[in-house]
Design a protein around this nucleic acid. Sequence first.
RNA 1: GGUCGCGUGGCCGAGUGGCUAGGCAGAGCUCUGCAAAAGCUUCUACGGCGGUUCGAAUCCGUCCGCGACCUCCA
Length: 490
Amino acid sequence: MNIPSLYIYNSLSRKKELFVPINAPFVSMYVCGPTVYNEAHLGNIRTFLTFDIVFRYLTHLKYKVRYVRNITDVGHLVDDVDFGEDKIEKRAKLEKVEPMEIVQKYTNNFHTTTQLFNLLNPSIEPTATGHIVEQIDYIKKIIENGYAYETNGSVYFDVKKYAEKFNYGELSGRKIDELLEQTRENLEGGNEKRFFADFAIWKKASPETIMKWNSPWGEGVPGWHLECSVMSTKYLGQQFDIHGGGMDLKFPHHECEIAQSVGSGGPQPVKIWMHSNMLTVNGTKMSKSLGNSFLPIELITGSHPLLEKGYSPMTVRFFFLQAQYRSTVDFSNEALQASEKGLNRLLSSFSTLEKINPSAESTFNIQALFEKCEDSMRDDFNTPVTIANLFEITKYINLLKEGKHTISKVDLDFLKDQYSLFIYNILGLKEENESSNSELTNNLIQILIQLRNQSKQNKDYSTSDLIRNELNKLNISLKDSKDETTWEFN
RNA sequence: GGUCGCGUGGCCGAGUGGCUAGGCAGAGCUCUGCAAAAGCUUCUACGGCGGUUCGAAUCCGUCCGCGACCUCCA
């Protein structure tokens, strides 16, 4: 297998590294999925989009990718105090339904949303509740290795003990000494933990808790960090290629995952840690608590107060891809509108392409242009540069149509093939609302267009303008080009 | 306070020790009965101050501003 060099930024080493799979052509990738206690917002979508691109591009490079993205359906506590409440249970009480109804409802919702944004489904989508037995076994191993202790029916990971031998904090750049400085103030109040940085891997359940399981330590729930270690190990092995997630999961979540894996007797679990940056609104992280988060539906309808109008899912997808995944992206109406127009320009080239006739020779090097697209993707999935390169190709397509360049049959076929490959398959963009118009509507409007063009030929401009204006009142706009008139809904 | 990151033209956003990123907006032009749409062309910026260098927006130092994480967060 001859695969060109792909470089990926590794959060662990803090530099771009040549990607060499542990067991090529297979690639194993784990991404922290959603906690299904409410609707995913746009910030969440950005992260999943990042890894959708990684999945798509690795697949394009002919790797056989096993992409695991979990569903957290238990164990994610509202906070980490002794009797922290499960996020899903809390929501279930609020909506007065069973916790599993909440799980089902928001899992369904999540899937609808991922489809909306054209995110590919992962190879495996395991749930935390489906792996309770494995999690209990995993906890036992950690205890046997001496890196966890039981208190009051809960089991905590012993960070201090772990740090004696291993480097706790290596991923997030935290020093255990700095953590120690905060010990005194944080240890007040009869905490069950020996050390404030210790984290629960099994949490005792209160009597009224509905979702709980039997364990050697009594009834309880697994800790949030644990599921990812357990399920990644189960489906990808003790060591796998890529682990992804949002930047805000780096600490403590991913740090704890490493500790659990190593503490259970395994090796350093992940070769490349990838973290996608946050979506911001007016420079501040999008989050529900700040009230600045958009739900997909608010985005499409434009019903959120911060939005001037609605934007299609593909516009948002394209907008996200115009920034590199490791940079923050700021959400603004101006930027969205710019993306909307830019995307439209890119996509309209497909129909332009159909009108181009091949010549004997090509006057430009189309292979080189697409090679640039590959290069930018291979440089840590640099989609903004790839898009810039595609716009350059778009310009050539337009120049071809104007006859200012020529292209051979072979090159034209290559161009069509590659343009479609990059835009549809690799960037995962797609046409929208094209098929939403009924055949009848289209035929009726075509008749009106014919009538109008006849009027124009007869220089009967009052009739032609009448047709155009009346259609406009129905939110239908006509677009004249040199050889034809097309229409679209406003 | 600790750790990390960022500051690019009107806006959004790449990148790089010397060679035009790109998109949107603006301007000009083409097309056109008019308008719209579309296309082409164009607009040359890198927070302040020092330093290294033949040359820095890119490296180093410092200051200013902004943000993320520090056990809810994608």
